[in-house]
């Protein structure tokens, strides 16, 4: 970047040497100096938001991985994992999201939505995953928006205008579409660790969600379409797993089932890689 600037500076010097008729202080030049500043400010802001959004993505992914460790652990470890995920989510909101919100203050969020859409989708995914494990259902859009709205809290009385990161319904639904993939993974892991109730429950939830996505009808968004294709294959996988579970239940005593499924899962993975 410095190099480029230098190059443009150089060409400018060369220009003025060759062309003494370009007045450096003409109205045109003065105005363009102003424009240059405004343009840089906007681009810098975009860049800053983008960087923060990448941090949001990374940390949200970490939360998701933490939550995936839950199947098969003791109850107290599970509590620990859930609470550490909750505090990490809080931390993301209070530092990174707040930072984005500060940048967006007095701006029109739509102008910078492309800079943070990836981060916020990942965040919605992590948040809704955690919410699901706590309550067994999915978080609503308005509740998610509330999580990234600041200033309404008692501590922030200085802010007259509430500070918030705009969460468009589109980002919310894309995040929820990603959640289905996490639920599938969680469900399969529950099968192999022997938590069969959870497995059936997730299968039901996924079916309901599938109905929900179908009820939307045709959505002219390419991203959502791709996510739907992925979702369909995860749903299929979960349905197959529940089906086999039910079949084997009749032939093997319950306490041995989980061992059988550990084998089944390995086979499945093996077949997948071939």
């Amino acid at each position: 970047m410095a190099e480029l600037q230098e190059a443009s500076l150089k060409s400018e010097c060369k220009g003025s040497k060759q062309l003494p008729d370009i007045c450096q202080d003409s109205q045109l030049m003065m105005k363009f100096r102003e424009y240059s500043k405004m343009l840089d400010e906007k681009n810098d802001k975009h860049e800053r938001i983008y960087k923060t959004s990448r941090d949001v993505t990374v940390r949200s992914k970490r939360v998701i991985f933490t939550l995936h460790r839950i199947p098969g652990v003791a109850e107290d470890v599970k509590e620990n994992l859930l609470s550490s995920a909750a505090s990490e989510l809080r931390a993301i909101e209070q530092t990174l999201m707040k930072h984005i919100a500060m940048e967006l203050r007095d701006e029109e969020p739509h102008q910078f939505v492309n800079a943070y859409t990836a981060g916020i989708q990942e965040y919605v995914e992590a948040l809704s995953f955690h919410y699901f494990l706590m309550t067994g259902t999915i978080i609503s859009h308005s509740e998610t928006q509330k999580r990234v709205t600041f200033g309404a809290e008692a501590g922030d009385q200085i802010d007259v205008v509430p500070l918030s990161v705009l969460l468009q319904p589109k980002e919310y639904i894309l995040g929820i579409a990603d959640l289905t993939g996490e639920l599938m993974r969680f469900c399969i892991k529950c099968v192999s660790t022997g938590d069969f109730d959870k497995c059936y429950k997730i299968c039901d939830i996924l079916k309901t969600m599938h109905g929900g996505f179908l009820s939307l009808g045709y959505i002219p968004a390419k991203e959502l379409y791709h996510k739907m294709v992925v979702f369909k294959s995860s749903l299929h996988k979960v349905e197959e797993a529940c089906y086999s579970l039910q079949l084997r239940k009749s032939e093997v005593p319950a306490e041995m089932l989980s061992d059988v499924f550990a084998m089944y899962d390995a086979d499945e993975n093996h077949a997948h890689y071939i």
Binding site: S11, S16, L19, D21, F32, Y35, S36, D40
Partner: peptide, 17 residues
């Protein structure tokens, strides 16, 4: 040509993306 030179000098002040 004169006008385009002026314009070029002015745009050289920007850092376009």
């Amino acid at each position: 040509r004169q006008f385009l030179r002026d314009l070029h000098a002015a745009y050289s002040l920007l850092f376009p993306k």
